[in-house]
Nucleic acid binder design. Sequence first.
DNA 1: CCTGCATCCCGTAGCTACTACGGGTTCAAG
DNA 2: CTTGAACCCGTAGTAGCTACGGGATGCAGG
Lengths: 137, 137
Amino acid sequence: MVTASRGISIGQLAKATGVNLETIRYYESIRLMPPPPRTRGGHRAYDRTHVQRLAFIRHARELGFGIEDVRALLRLAEPDRRSCAEVRDIASAHLAAVRAKLTHLVALERILDGTVERCSGEQVPICPILDMLGRPS
Amino acid sequence: MVTASRGISIGQLAKATGVNLETIRYYESIRLMPPPPRTRGGHRAYDRTHVQRLAFIRHARELGFGIEDVRALLRLAEPDRRSCAEVRDIASAHLAAVRAKLTHLVALERILDGTVERCSGEQVPICPILDMLGRPS
DNA sequence: CCTGCATCCCGTAGCTACTACGGGTTCAAG
DNA sequence: CTTGAACCCGTAGTAGCTACGGGATGCAGG
């Protein structure tokens, strides 16, 4: 069981946040997570603030924010440092990027769908898929 | 000017296909493009078949096919090796992946849009974006 | 022929965001 | 105190390129 006085181990933090253990160490190495205190034996001992921070990071990553965006959002989330305008700038820039990707994927879906549909699957001299890929321009 | 007798240089191939010169060398290193003949001085000398192959690769990559898929498609595009069914399998698997990504991005767009919309941009005690990111679960 | 400069050569390292490996240490339950 | 799970760290691998740098080559003009 968890003994609160000894802190939260990296494995427990991983389970609590759904973030891979190796990823937590990676986040520490890139200074996205602060280096936590250690036990006598050198094991990481986290506390509730680390759980919160990592959960925040996970949510942001799930929403597709890049690491540098997350870093900026974390800075802006600090008390007395809150600048909602900057936060919104980051979020809306990301939203625009998502929309661009979306547009791209929709176009892509249409082409693939149209081509696959025209493919009979039989051994015919002309395959519409290969045809499309091989055509100039 | 292009002197056909001396072959097409890697730079000309790059321009002709819109593929980055470094990328062409990379494709050669992973055996996606065959090693072309060289000039006395060691410069790559391509011909029309290389242009076709690279154009095919570029189209497939633009449609989001992974390198290994492209490799398979190229094999299946060889004469007497055409198996339209296999081609369709690759393409429809990719289509499914695209649709999954699409679904994901749509959901993501909705969340971001909803949150950004609720953000006034003013210095308020509660920022809906940070709030969303910081909330548990 | 020769100069000058664009192009090309190759190997290596960097990018994003992790994930995996492996040999050794520590923790905690029984 | 034993034992096995969990943790340590450094390194390398993933996709798919892109960038860098120092040197060799190609080609057009003089």
